[in-house]
């Protein structure tokens, strides 16, 4: 509930600033004007918002589905670590925005290129968190497994993986914010719909009010997504100190 209160505080500060400074609407619209505009254009915003949300979610799922197994492979198989990890690091060094036009050439103008852009931006923190989590196992725990004559696969399943879960969850949280960025970038470059597309259109006509409405919607959606991931985290790693201290 504190998050609602801090949201209201931000709105109040904004309202006071507009009332005192009286800037022109194309520089800083009033919060009530933005609210009214959100209501009148709600059908449009909803339609484009749904398309953006589906890209964000699909991209996030793509990044999880690629990032976690790839991290597991990199830790479990030394050859993969040596061969593939440098490629992944180099890929991450490329600004993904620069790849967006290429993805359009490869995948056309549909949903696919935008999901791929989103996924490619979001997957790296998940990968790194998975690798770090799996590697940072207590060596004494491994010795315990050795004296119990554990199978490698069992050690992985019962010791390494659960112990890495808090780290992986933190990676997914970071990826959530990146996925929102990825979704919007994808729509800037390669789309005829979505909130990113709407933003570009609105900037052409100096329609600052709708731009504010879009930005606020994005902030709310990203926050809700973050809380949703936190709930899943709480459910999956409730045994971890980070969850118990709440």
């Amino acid at each position: 509930m504190w998050s609602v209160a801090s949201g209201l505080l931000a709105l109040a500060l904004w309202g006071v600033a507009v009332a005192v400074l009286k800037p022109p609407a194309y520089i800083l619209p009033a919060p009530w004007a933005v609210l009214a505009r959100t209501w009148t254009d709600h059908a449009l915003l909803l339609q484009h918002g749904a398309s953006t949300l589906s890209e964000i979610l699909a991209g996030l799922i793509l990044s999880i589905v690629v990032g976690i197994p790839l991290g597991i492979l990199i830790v479990a198989i030394p050859v993969v670590h040596r061969l593939v990890y440098p490629i992944v690091i180099a890929f991450n060094a490329i600004p993904k925005v620069a790849l967006a036009p290429l993805f359009v050439v490869w995948f056309g103008y549909g949903l696919l290129p935008r999901v791929v852009i989103t996924g490619s931006i979001a997957f790296f923190p998940i990968l790194v968190a998975t690798i770090t989590g799996l590697m940072s196992i207590d060596p004494e725990l491994l010795r315990l497994a050795t004296v119990m004559r554990a199978r490698q696969s069992r050690t992985f399943l019962h010791l390494r993986l659960p112990q890495a879960m808090p780290s992986i969850a933190a990676g997914v949280k970071i990826a959530t914010s990146l996925a929102v960025i990825g979704g919007i970038i994808g729509e800037f470059v390669a789309s005829d719909r979505g909130l990113g597309y709407l933003l570009v259109q609105a900037s052409g006509t100096l329609d600052t009010t709708i731009m504010f409405a879009i930005v606020i919607i994005l902030a709310v959606v990203a926050s809700l997504l973050f809380y949703a991931i936190s709930l899943v985290e709480n459910y999956l790693v409730f045994w971890h100190a980070s969850q118990r201290s709440k």
Binding site: M148, A150, R151, R154, H158, Q163
Partner: peptide, 18 residues
């Protein structure tokens, strides 16, 4: 292991050997 209950911790040797 915090992710297993007490009973599962006691049974860990068998679990680890499959």
């Amino acid at each position: 292991l915090d992710w297993k209950n007490v009973l599962a911790n006691v049974l860990l040797p068998f679990e680890l050997r499959g």
